[in-house]
Amino acid sequence: MTENLLNELEPTPTDAPKRGIGMGGIVLLVGVVAVAAVFGLALIDRNAGQPTSGPAPDFTLTTLDGQDVRLSDLRGQVVVINFWASWCVPCRDEAPALQAVWERYRDRGVVLLGVAWTDTERNARAFIDEFSQNYPNGLDLGTRIGELYGITGVPETFVIDQQGQVVGFYPIALQQDQLAAVIESVLAGGGGT
C-alpha cells in the first residue's frame, strides 16, 4: 500500500499514457497475494484441528520423577495420553478412574501418560499425591505437546494403538468402564470406538 503512495507521488509522464504494469503494481500484487496466502495457510492450519486419526505426533515427556518418556519408544504398546490440569474440575472426577485403569492394565501392554497442561509444578504434584497416581506424569513445558495435539481444553484423552496410530480421541472426562472398553477393543485389535 505504501509502495503505491510512493509511486503515485511520481509525476506521470504525459507522453506515455500506457505504461504497462509497473514495478509498483507488480510489487503490490505480489505483496497482496503473499499476505492472502499466509492467512489462507494459517486458516487451513487452524482448521486442521486435532490428530484424531493417523500417526500420533511424537514427543518426549519429562516426568515429574525426572525420567524422559518418548512416545515412539512405546511402540508395540497401547498408549493412553491424558491431558489434565489441577485447576480443572472435571479432571478431579476423572483422576480416580485413570488410576484404576492404570492398575488394571499396566501389565497387559498398556501405558498411561499424564500430561499436565498449563499447570504449575507445585499444584500438579499436589494433585498427583491427592489421587495417589503412580503412572508416568509430567508437565507440558511451553505447552509444546498440547500444541502438537491441538488441545483446546482439559481433560482431553487420546488413545494410540500398538502401531503408533491415534485410534481414539475423547474431549470429555472419561468413566472407568468407558476407557476400559476402549482399551479392551484396541488390545483385541479392533481399534477405538
Binding site: 506521470t12 500506457k18 505504461r19 504494469i21 509497473g22 503494481g25 503490490l28
Partner: peptide, 8 residues
C-alpha cells in the same frame, strides 16, 4: 485500479 491507472 492498476488496469485503469496504466491506461492513464
Amino acid at each position: 485500479i492498476l488496469y485503469r491507472w496504466n491506461r492513464g
